[in-house]
């Protein structure tokens, strides 16, 4: 455990807290992509299947359960709970996620660390996480202007990815035998997806002003 990894996990948790606060306190899921949240739920449920047989630390196991619980709760609220379910707009949030899930499943079957079922599922979850934010980014793009809490949510997720990237660099130079090509590749792609958002986030938040983020 290093500081980058820890802060990365904390900003990941922060992103869940921001999103849960937004949809429970604000009673609205407007601007939030249910598609992205469903993808995250699939990602966590498939990657953390090993909760049943792998134990690395209490910290890890606890956070795995937290991530599955939070993403499931978010999907449940937006899909089934009133009044939030009536604020979700399926016409706006219509990214065809089958085109993300399909190729990631094929990639998971073909490119993995070891030819076992769990390694295939695990690789699938890594690939899917890399692109899971796309429906959310497309939704923001369509809306043009992004509500503050939503922009903080995406920023917290982006920070989590950036910090994990630094964690990998740190581990590569401080540990022997630390090689994770699949994770590094997918993680770099994933972090890259946030670069454009961060540019606009910085533009609208600089000078301490709390203006909504405007996307072209």
């Amino acid at each position: 455990m290093n500081i980058f990894r820890f802060l990365g996990d904390m900003s990941h948790i922060l992103s869940f807290v921001i999103l849960l606060l937004k949809i429970t306190q604000g009673k609205s899921a407007a601007g939030i992509s249910l598609r992205t949240q469903e993808l995250y739920m699939i990602v966590f449920c498939s990657r953390y299947l090993d909760l049943f047989w792998n134990f690395s630390s209490l910290y890890n196991s606890f956070l795995k359960v937290v991530f599955i619980a939070c993403s499931s709760a978010i999907v449940y609220i937006i899909r089934f709970k009133s009044p939030q379910k009536d604020t979700w707009n399926p016409e706006l949030d219509n990214f065809p996620i089958q085109y993300l899930i399909g190729p990631c499943a094929v990639a998971g079957l073909l490119i993995n660390q070891d030819w076992t079922p769990f390694e295939m599922i695990w690789a699938f979850s890594i690939y899917l996480e890399a692109v899971a934010i796309l429906p959310q980014l497309f939704l923001l793009q369509k809306q043009g202007e992004v509500e503050n809490l939503t922009s903080h949510y995406v920023a917290a997720l982006g920070a989590y990815r950036g910090l994990y990237l630094m964690n990998w660099v740190y581990r590569y130079f401080t540990e022997d035998d630390y090689l994770q090509r699949i994770v590094w590749f997918a993680g770099t792609v994933q972090t890259g997806l946030y670069i454009d958002f961060f540019y606009h986030y910085y533009q609208s938040k600089r000078g301490g002003l709390s203006r909504p983020v405007k996307l072209p």
Partner: peptide, 10 residues
């Protein structure tokens, strides 16, 4: 033999 990375990240 391929070395499997330990799954100690989230």
């Amino acid at each position: 033999e391929m070395l499997l990375a330990e799954k100690d990240e989230l």
